[in-house]
C-alpha cells in the first residue's frame, strides 16, 4: 500500500513538473536594454501564432514602456509576412522539447532586416493538442537583440482551456492549414479561448515587466 502511494505521489510530481511554465527568462542576468524599440513577430504563418503574437504585442504596448511596432507596420515592412521560420525546438508535438540553438537565425536576418527596431520578440505556436475536454496551445518565444541577433531571453509555456466539443475537428488534410487551426483555437467557444489567451498574455507581460523593469508607471 505504501509503495502504491509512493508511485502515485511520484507520478503526480512528474505530471506537475511537466505543467510548469516559464513566461520570460533572461539568459544574461546582467544585460542592460539599450533602447525600447521592439517588434513582436510570429515565427509561423498559421493563424494561431499570428493571433497570439498580435495579442502579446498589444499587451506589451499597453502595459510597458517598450515602443512596440504595430502589426500593420510589420506587415507593410516585411514582404509576405507572416512567414515560417524554424524555431527553437528539437520536437514539437505534444509539448515542446526546447533547443534554443536550433532557431534559423539566418532566415530571421533575411526576412526581418527591414524592421527598424532594436529588439525582435519572436513567438511560435508549433503545436495544438486536443484532448476530449480541453485544448492546449504550446508556445515558445525568443527575444533577440538587433543587429547582433543575440538571444536576450526566451520562454516556453502553454495556453489551456476547456473545449466541450474538441472531437468535431476537420480531419481533411487538404484544408487543415487554413481551417483546423482556426477551429482549434475557437472550438472550445470563443469566450473560453479569449479568456485563456488574455490571462496567459497578461501573465507573460507581467513577467517581462518584472525581468526588464519596463512597466508603465501607474
Amino acid at each position: 500500500m505504501m509503495k502504491k502511494n509512493t508511485i502515485l505521489l511520484l507520478a503526480g510530481v512528474l505530471i506537475l513538473a511537466g505543467c510548469i511554465s516559464s513566461y520570460f527568462s533572461i539568459t544574461d542576468s546582467k544585460y542592460i536594454f539599450k533602447s525600447d524599440r521592439i517588434a513582436v513577430v510570429s515565427g509561423l504563418d498559421d493563424e494561431v501564432s499570428v493571433y497570439l503574437a498580435g495579442e502579446l504585442s498589444r499587451e506589451l504596448d499597453a502595459k510597458t514602456t517598450f515602443k512596440v511596432m504595430p502589426e500593420e507596420e510589420i506587415a507593410r515592412s516585411v514582404p509576405g509576412y507572416p512567414v515560417t521560420i524554424h524555431g527553437p525546438w528539437s520536437a514539437a508535438y505534444f509539448g515542446i522539447d526546447e533547443d534554443y540553438t536550433r532557431t534559423d537565425v539566418n532566415r530571421i536576418k533575411i526576412i526581418m532586416s527591414k524592421l527598424d527596431v532594436d529588439y525582435l520578440y519572436v513567438l511560435w505556436a508549433p503545436s495544438v493538442v486536443r484532448s476530449s475536454n480541453s485544448i492546449q496551445i504550446n508556445i515558445i518565444t525568443q527575444l533577440l537583440e538587433i543587429p547582433s541577433y543575440r538571444e536576450i531571453a526566451h520562454s516556453s509555456y502553454y495556453i489551456k482551456y476547456t473545449a466541450v466539443d474538441a472531437f468535431s475537428i476537420d480531419r481533411s488534410a487538404k484544408n487543415h492549414i487554413s481551417n483546423a487551426t482556426k477551429k482549434a483555437i475557437s472550438i472550445g467557444g470563443s469566450k473560453n479561448m479569449e479568456d485563456a489567451v488574455r490571462d496567459t498574455t497578461e501573465r507573460a507581460v507581467k513577467e517581462i515587466i518584472e525581468a526588464t523593469g519596463k512597466g508603465k508607471p501607474r
Partner: peptide, 18 residues
C-alpha cells in the same frame, strides 16, 4: 488531470486527427 483521456495531436502547421 493533465492527460484526462485521449490526447489528439493537431499541429498548427500540420495534420490533425482523432
Amino acid at each position: 488531470t493533465c492527460l484526462d483521456i485521449v490526447v489528439v495531436l493537431g499541429l498548427g502547421n500540420g495534420t490533425g486527427g482523432m
